[in-house]
Computed example of a mutant assay.
Amino acid sequence: MKSYAVFLRGINVGGINIKMADLKSALASCGFTEVKTLLASGNVALASELGAPAVKQEIEGCLRKEFGYDAWVVVLGADKVAGIVEACPYPADDKSTHTYITLASDTAMLDELFEAGTRLDGTQQHRLGPEAMAWLAPAGGTLDSPFSKLSSKPRFKSGTTTRNLRTMIKVRDATAALQNG
Score class of each variant (00 low, 15 high):
residue 50 L to I: 03
residue 50 L to D: 12
residue 50 L to E: 12
residue 50 L to A: 12
residue 50 L to Y: 11
residue 50 L to R: 13
residue 51 G to P: 11
residue 52 A to G: 12
residue 52 A to Q: 13
residue 52 A to E: 15
residue 53 P to A: 10
residue 53 P to M: 14
residue 53 P to I: 11
residue 53 P to K: 06
residue 53 P to C: 10
residue 54 A to Q: 15
residue 54 A to F: 07
residue 55 V to S: 11
residue 55 V to K: 08
residue 55 V to F: 06
residue 55 V to R: 08
residue 57 Q to E: 14
residue 57 Q to T: 15
residue 58 E to V: 14
residue 58 E to W: 04
residue 58 E to K: 15
residue 59 I to M: 09
residue 59 I to H: 06
residue 60 E to V: 14
residue 60 E to T: 14
residue 61 G to D: 04
residue 62 C to H: 08
residue 62 C to N: 12
residue 62 C to T: 14
residue 62 C to F: 09
residue 62 C to M: 09
residue 62 C to V: 07
residue 63 L to Y: 13
residue 63 L to N: 08
residue 64 R to G: 14
residue 64 R to N: 04
residue 65 K to S: 08
residue 65 K to Y: 00
residue 66 E to C: 09
residue 66 E to Y: 04
residue 66 E to F: 03
residue 66 E to I: 02
residue 67 F to I: 07
residue 68 G to Y: 06
residue 68 G to V: 11
residue 68 G to M: 10
residue 68 G to L: 07
residue 69 Y to Q: 09
residue 69 Y to A: 04
residue 70 D to F: 02
residue 70 D to I: 10
residue 70 D to V: 05
residue 71 A to P: 04
residue 71 A to F: 05
residue 72 W to E: 05
residue 72 W to A: 11
residue 73 V to P: 03
residue 73 V to T: 11
residue 74 V to R: 02
residue 74 V to C: 01
residue 75 V to S: 01
residue 76 L to K: 11
residue 76 L to C: 04
residue 77 G to H: 00
residue 78 A to K: 01
residue 78 A to H: 06
residue 78 A to S: 10
residue 79 D to P: 00
residue 79 D to G: 11
residue 79 D to I: 00
residue 80 K to S: 10
residue 80 K to D: 08
residue 80 K to W: 06
residue 81 V to Q: 11
residue 81 V to I: 15
residue 81 V to G: 10
residue 81 V to R: 13
residue 81 V to P: 05
residue 81 V to E: 08
residue 82 A to W: 08
residue 82 A to E: 14
residue 82 A to G: 13
residue 83 G to K: 14
residue 84 I to D: 05
residue 84 I to Y: 05
residue 84 I to C: 05
residue 84 I to R: 04
residue 85 V to Q: 08
residue 86 E to D: 15
residue 86 E to C: 13
residue 86 E to P: 13
residue 86 E to A: 15
residue 86 E to W: 07
residue 87 A to W: 03
residue 87 A to Y: 05
residue 87 A to V: 03
residue 87 A to L: 07
residue 87 A to G: 01
residue 88 C to L: 09
residue 88 C to E: 00
residue 88 C to H: 11
residue 88 C to T: 09
residue 88 C to P: 10
residue 89 P to D: 04
residue 89 P to V: 09
residue 89 P to F: 03
residue 89 P to G: 12
residue 89 P to E: 10
residue 89 P to A: 06
residue 90 Y to D: 02
residue 90 Y to V: 05
residue 90 Y to P: 08
residue 90 Y to I: 01
residue 91 P to Q: 07
residue 91 P to D: 06
residue 91 P to V: 03
residue 91 P to K: 09
residue 91 P to S: 10
residue 92 A to F: 03
residue 92 A to V: 15
residue 92 A to I: 08
residue 93 D to S: 12
residue 93 D to A: 14
residue 93 D to V: 15
residue 93 D to P: 04
residue 94 D to S: 12
residue 94 D to R: 00
residue 94 D to G: 03
residue 94 D to H: 13
residue 94 D to N: 13
residue 95 K to W: 05
residue 96 S to H: 01
residue 96 S to Q: 03
residue 96 S to P: 00
residue 96 S to I: 00
residue 97 T to H: 13
residue 97 T to L: 01
residue 97 T to S: 06
residue 98 H to W: 11
residue 99 T to E: 03
residue 99 T to S: 09
residue 99 T to V: 01
residue 99 T to Y: 02
residue 100 Y to C: 00
residue 100 Y to D: 02
residue 100 Y to I: 01
residue 101 I to F: 01
residue 101 I to G: 07
residue 102 T to I: 10
residue 102 T to Y: 03
residue 102 T to R: 01
residue 102 T to C: 11
residue 102 T to E: 06
